[in-house]
Design a protein around this nucleic acid. Structure first.
Lengths: 209, 209, 209, 209
DNA sequence: AATGAATGAGAATTCATTCAT
DNA sequence: AATGAATGAATTCTCATTCAT
């Protein structure tokens, strides 16, 4: 009767995480209700506590799951060899993940944007694979003279990823008014590479302030 | 205790806002307790409710105060008439406020970066004065041909402000590792205006993808 | 400057009682707010407390005032000499008071209908003059053979007054749907004297059960 | 504590209602405290809220329970087919409930006699079953010519029930002095059917004023 | 393993009362 | 005498967590 297989347990866990992701993405950690999550997953409250020791822990697990999925996806990406093309491809890969796992990603992005040192570590750690890809693309760009060499590529990579999150956030915050998700990759790449200055208005390299 | 002067009332209000800013910046809107705030300000719970009708309203007032202070501060600054100089001045003014009122600014930035449609309205409404200044500076830049005219200035202004928040957040999230607060204005202005592309790597105008 | 005359003090007291009557009649003792009452009277909260030591005391004073006014009015009534005519006149006198001092009367009736021994004493004491008039009219009716002599007139009088209150209450409770205030006197007198039984259905006197 | 049987749940509900009835009957809706009620019932605050969504709802449930019990009780009674006998039976059934569930009944009567439009709706709605029985008895009485047909039976029914409440209230208010509870049914039925007028003193039908 | 009733700390909010001015 | 800011006890309601079944 009882004797639940490991697969079945994982299935329950998956359902709970899925429901949790959705609720957390809508309501945030504090406002989301454990009861609502468990019921949405098709279980009673007690069951949730058999799988996760606390609401906080469940939240952490959702974040982990989200970053795990994102990282997996990014590893599959293949692209041609221009920096612009590469960054565009990376941004599009991100958007793709985004679309398929929007709930998880919302939680992830929001947590990343909460700027709490604890989360920061967690998020950057799991976002690592992706950030490293960006970094690598940028480094190759520097070698090719396509990317300015006066700033450390790790920092540029963080900026790029931050811009992505910023645009997603802007999208959600404005309830889709601007930008549309489709525009995001190009918007981010353009902003990141070209800036807002008009053609020729850029100061000579090395100029201070 | 009747017949309190207007000055005294403002003083009480100031203390309450100050305490609220600190608590909200640490705990966020949901976790902060009205009781803790009033006590920290040196008053009883009821007093807070004599000044603000609800926790939400208090939160709104904190945000409004923060953005008012920021806007005021930067209006005092005098700058030469270049877009770059102007944006730099705006960013520095913001940083200056930031330093003196870190609690207020943390609340503001975190809320802005929470990307909840509800907050979005609240924040943009209260952030208005500052964003409008940025927008005006950009509009003048477009006229002078210093800013690319192919994107609406309101969107560019949001991007600029977003970058600023992003950098503050990066600073807090990395526990000060990078960037240092001092670098933020230039970092933001450079990223915003020039982008990360190397000199001459920018595609001709109108080029797609 | 200060030096307020006794008349002025009474005037303030009157205003406070008036406002209190209105608020208590709408909201009841618990729901009425001291602040609302004082402001409605044109004063600040503190002033009210200079005249009445507590909300309870104010409520008591309103009840006293209401009964005092009612008693005064009832003493002026004059009527012709039939029981039915007398009762009708008494009921109409009551209605008249009712109309001119509806707020006070509402409080009074509701308090009377709360059936708390404390209020009961207070109310019946002040309602005394009126009830005594009713009682006297009934006693004369018994002598004339118009009123059944098998029940003590004081009890019949209480029943009559109770019926009046019941009908007022029904009027307020149904938001005026039924009965209209104008109908009340006749309704009460008919119910009281004739009952609901059809002509001739009354059992022989002295019949038990 | 899961897997509680339906019987056990009903038992908890019963205890809560019982405690609530007692507290409401002593303190009224406003003054009664949810906390006190739950503790008196032997449970924690939260448990009460598992059974009733709000204080108001609990109050409504108490009233409903009271009127349900009254209606049930009197339906068991068998009576000969006279209006007088029927009304007497109804009044006695009510009194019987009254005695065994005085707390519930006090709440009911006091609320009914508060004459607030809000309560009015609540009470008449919940008092429905009982009032409808009275109404039906009266309607049959009209058909048999035992009840005067010149007044709508719903109004007569309200009057009857009002008289009943009035007498209970008189009993409580006078601290038992008059009437004794035992006398109430006959007192009410006699007052209601026969009135206080002496035999033959009733004016001819249709007579005005 | 799943359940969901019970719990009770904690939250926001109200408001009668006080008292310095 | 009038004021109204300050107070803080009290209230209703929520919800994460526990645990007997």
């Amino acid at each position: 009767m009882a004797r639940i297989t490991a697969t079945q347990k994982l299935e329950v866990r998956r359902k709970l995480l899925e429901a949790a992701a959705q609720h957390f993405s809508e309501a945030g950690l504090d406002r989301a209700s454990v009861d609502a999550i468990s019921v949405a997953a098709g279980f009673a409250k007690g069951t949730l506590y058999n799988y996760f020791p606390s609401k906080q822990a469940l939240f952490g697990a959702v974040i982990e799951e989200a970053s795990r999925r994102a990282a997996e996806r990014y590893r599959e990406v293949e692209v041609e060899e221009t920096t612009r093309a590469h960054l565009l491809a990376l941004a599009r890969a991100d958007l793709e993940v985004m679309r398929e796992e929007e709930d998880f990603m919302k939680v992830l992005v929001r947590e990343a944007m909460s700027f709490r040192p604890e989360s920061y570590a967690l998020v950057t750690q799991h976002l690592g694979p992706y950030v490293l890809e960006v970094e690598a693309a940028l480094a190759r760009g520097v070698e090719r003279g396509e990317i300015r060499g006066d700033r450390p590529t790790p920092q540029l990579a963080l900026l790029f990823v931050g811009l992505l999150g910023l645009m997603y956030g802007q999208h959600w915050g404005s309830a889709g008014a601007w930008p549309a998700l489709d525009e995001v990759p190009e918007l981010v790449v353009t902003s990141f590479l070209d800036g807002a200055g008009a053609e020729g208005s850029r100061p000579a390299k090395g100029t201070k302030r």
